[in-house]
Amino acid sequence: MSTAYPTTWRKPPQMIQSRGLRVALAVGALIYLVLAIGTIEVNWTRVVAGMERGQRFVAGFLQPDFTTRWRDISNGLMESLTMTFTSTVVGVLISVPIGVGAARNVAPVWVYYICRSIIATSRALQEIIVAIFFVALFGFGAFAGFLTLTFATIGFIGKLLAEDIEDIDEAQAEAIRATGASWLQLINYAIQPQVMPRLIGLSLYRLDINFRESAVIGIVGAGGIGAALNTSLSRYEYSSAGAILLIIIAIVMASEYSSGYLRKWVK
């Protein structure tokens, strides 16, 4: 019992071992913050004037006005909902073969590269930018929105589905291959049962996202409830805007709850 034990202990650094690098990173972050915050220009007179509008918006949100613009709202809502559903269905149908093709363990190399590049293009392009182009090409309205959402769905589902197929239990696939099954039989017996519940879950999730996005792409003219929202905001009709936002929140909440139940039921 003669050994003396140290009476101090410092927690060793967990992520970055070098002390110099740690200090440099901290200083760099600080300089960045100062520079970045310095770029914020605030026009205070404008803000003060805006506060009054802000109050009116909060008031409008608390006392939403559903009636005055009900025609616009209901039309926009109908467009958003139909666009959401059709684009999700078509998007999922297209993304299934693309997702299978983008899975390294089941697709030949050249198919793999083609499918991966389709997915990468779809994911890299913002919905809004895609919507702008589709509106320019196909004219204003829900059809451009439908195409935008379908395009975005392909990238989303395709990527996640491909990753899922790459993660499957290889033993099951091997067992089916050992029976002398063809490629389609392999997909049907070994892959489909393993990824189906997740595909359904992803589709429901994408349905949810598509609805939320459908509220946005209306701003650039691709139909849906976003157009109504844009109109009411540009006319400073905050009580109608509040009503639209509340409807969006309510629908997202409802779809989230019901998709939770559906997913449990599927499993």
């Binding site: 050994t3 003396a4 034990y5 140290p6 009476t7 101090t8 202990w9 410092r10």
Partner: peptide
């Protein structure tokens, strides 16, 4: 802040030993 009294730290080292 992980600033334990010195006796606690010495004791912890003793126990680990």
């Amino acid at each position: 802040m992980r600033r334990y009294p010195g006796s606690d730290i010495a004791n912890a080292f003793r126990l680990l030993d």
